[in-house]
């Protein structure tokens, strides 16, 4: 869906900020690549619970706690989260959160084409 590359755009000063769901998903996927399936399944379950309740605070708390590791891959995730957090409007939270979760889910073992 190439027309949806930029899910959200906002201009702050002279800078145009964009929310790219695709990028978000890829970054999450790269970040959690090395973790164990069991751990990720539990994490996904917990994250899904918070989104269900639209609890943004809890969602980011759990996510940041999980990504708070001295791992090269997570650096990219932090950076992307930081960039996107400002741009994300309230109503885009659901799409934002599910993109991240689906990214994590795509790293389970046993997948393929």
């Amino acid at each position: 869906m190439s027309e949806n590359i930029y899910y959200w755009q906002k201009v702050v000063g002279n800078k145009s900020l964009t929310l790219e769901l695709q990028k978000l998903k890829e970054v999450a996927s790269r970040g959690f690549q090395g973790e164990s399936d069991n751990y990720k399944q539990k994490l996904v379950y917990n994250l899904l619970e918070t989104v269900r309740n639209n609890d943004q605070k809890e969602f980011f708390y759990i996510l940041l706690k999980a990504a708070n590791k001295p791992n090269e891959n997570f650096k990219e995730l932090w950076q992307t989260l930081q960039e996107n957090y400002d741009v994300m409007p309230e109503e885009a939270f659901i799409n934002f959160a599910y993109s991240l979760i689906l990214g994590i889910m795509s790293t389970y073992s046993g997948g393929g084409e």
Partner: peptide, 18 residues
Amino acid sequence: LNILLKNLNEKKELCSNN
């Protein structure tokens, strides 16, 4: 999405099917 992903979460190969 919550229902879908929660159910999918049990089926790992399906989640990671590109």
